[in-house]
Design a protein around this nucleic acid. Structure first.
Lengths: 152, 152
DNA sequence: GGACATTTGACGTTTTTTGACCAAACTGGC
DNA sequence: GCCAGTTTGGTCAAAAAACGTCAAATGTCC
């Protein structure tokens, strides 16, 4: 994937993935400048790699203050889930609360029993090598992440 | 067996066998150049020696940045890609390696593309609030945990 | 000589890159 | 408020970069 178009695509996807909203705004001329290519190359990348079928929405505006906005529907949808998980779990969580949350989710059918068990075991194993003082934070992170990919 | 086709076949097989995943990517024009033959000779070799019945998959792309990819089904199976990749994570991992690992898993069908994107995004976002010095460790933990629950 | 395999080259398709020209949106003077 | 000029992004077609197909020519082995 060593084509210009491929590199631009990868760059944009990275930007989008690290954005909290799964959405970015760029200026076509800036991007073209930083990749040393003609501006229309950017349109080519957008048309071939960021189509609705591939889960992206591209909006733009011309004129002064113009921009190109790219939204990943996939990530957009996961935002809600992520923030709801963050509300339930928070920045840190102790083992007991993590445990009961998993039990609740399994009972509610949001995740299956097998995965709940798997998540408990994974957390316990990973925390082994973590300084006890940090465990509540790391536990929260792991729990949030695993639940996100399982429930999405 | 000292025909041109035979020598090209032997050369490609040597390359494939020395690749850890039993897969190589070449450029038809380069190969033709180095064997001093017409490009279509390469197609002849592929059609007669690297067929599915003989255990190979050949994929290709035209246009700028085009390539020909040959995969040996046998070598691929023997490695058990998913678990071998999983073991490759280790105690710490940088962003680039994590990225390419996810790409490979998605290509191999071990996880779907949608989840790969989700995992990348989740890792990036969680790491935002982590001291850069610890990121490789935390990244490894998150990646391992999320892969565990999605591949299970 | 016939059957089969190999080699070559002309022509075709797909994907990427580039550039000339077009259209919309903002800005500032009147 | 309107017009002219500037600032952006959009379109489209040609050129370039790869790979694919097919059939004719050539070799090889009974």
């Amino acid at each position: 994937m060593s084509t210009l178009a491929g590199r631009i695509e990868a760059y944009l996807k990275r930007l989008i993935e690290s954005d909290r909203e799964g959405q970015i705004e760029i200026r076509r001329c800036d991007l073209a400048e930083s990749f040393q290519c003609v501006p229309s190359q950017i349109n080519y990348v957008l048309e071939t790699r960021f189509t609705p079928e591939k889960g992206y929405i591209v909006e733009s505006r011309r004129g002064g203050g113009g921009y190109i906005r790219i939204t990943s529907l996939e990530l957009r949808r996961s935002i809600d889930l992520a923030s709801s998980l963050y509300r339930q779990i928070g920045r840190e969580i102790d083992e007991e609360r993590a445990d009961s949350l998993l039990t609740k989710l399994a009972e509610a059918g949001s995740i299956d029993q097998r995965r709940a068990t798997l998540i408990r075991a994974a957390i316990r194993r990973e925390l082994n090598s973590v300084d006890p003082a940090w465990r509540p934070y790391v536990r929260a992170m792991l729990l949030r992440s695993m639940l996100l990919v399982v429930m999405a």
